[in-house]
């Protein structure tokens, strides 16, 4: 059961996209909000689940369609494409170099910092069912697996809601 009081005035982000650039934008907002003392929740759904997947385990899922989808959609925080100019992985490689030159943390570091600051990560139950993923497929920083109704009950209490 979700305690509604806990989410009063929080920031709730929905990360639908599995693109590196959008994931970084999400974590910039999340860590900045957490630094300002706001409770932050990130709801990872569909392609966004890649951001919180553990490394390894290429073949996941119960049937051949889920297995094929998971092979083709393989990714984790250190292996994500960007939404523009991906160029078979050259784009993300160059972006990572450019960001580290400017001392912007990597997505992996952002996830660690966000977790340290009490940002809550929620994987979406329905996307997990469709893709045949289990709670064990995700990093240990994740909270409970939640559904759309629970997400909405959190979003209703939040002051800032973004869909990325």
């Amino acid at each position: 059961m979700i305690d509604q009081i806990k989410f009063k005035g929080s920031v709730t982000l929905v990360l639908f996209s599995g693109d590196l650039d959008k994931a970084i934008a999400t974590f910039v907002i999340a860590t900045a909000a957490a630094s300002m003392g706001m409770p932050v929740n990130i709801f990872f759904t569909f392609w966004g689940l890649n951001v919180i997947k553990k490394k390894g385990g290429l073949i996941k899922g119960q049937n051949w369609m889920q297995k094929m989808l998971n092979i083709m959609n393989y990714g984790h925080a250190k292996k994500l494409a960007i939404s523009k100019m991906n160029m078979l992985g050259m784009g993300p490689a160059m972006l990572k170099v450019m960001m580290s030159q400017k001392k912007v943390p990597s997505l992996h570091e952002f996830i660690q910092t966000a977790h340290q600051m009490g940002v809550k990560f929620y994987p979406c139950e329905m996307s997990m069912t469709v893709m045949g993923l289990k709670k064990e497929d995700f990093i240990d920083e994740c909270q409970d697996v939640i559904g759309a109704v629970t997400y909405l009950s959190i979003a209703k209490e939040s002051n800032i809601n973004l869909f990325i």
Partner: peptide, 14 residues
């Protein structure tokens, strides 16, 4: 020094 947005605020908060 050397850190970019939002890390200075994050580090200050911590």
């Amino acid at each position: 020094r050397g850190l970019s947005c939002p890390m200075p605020s994050v580090k200050t908060a911590l």
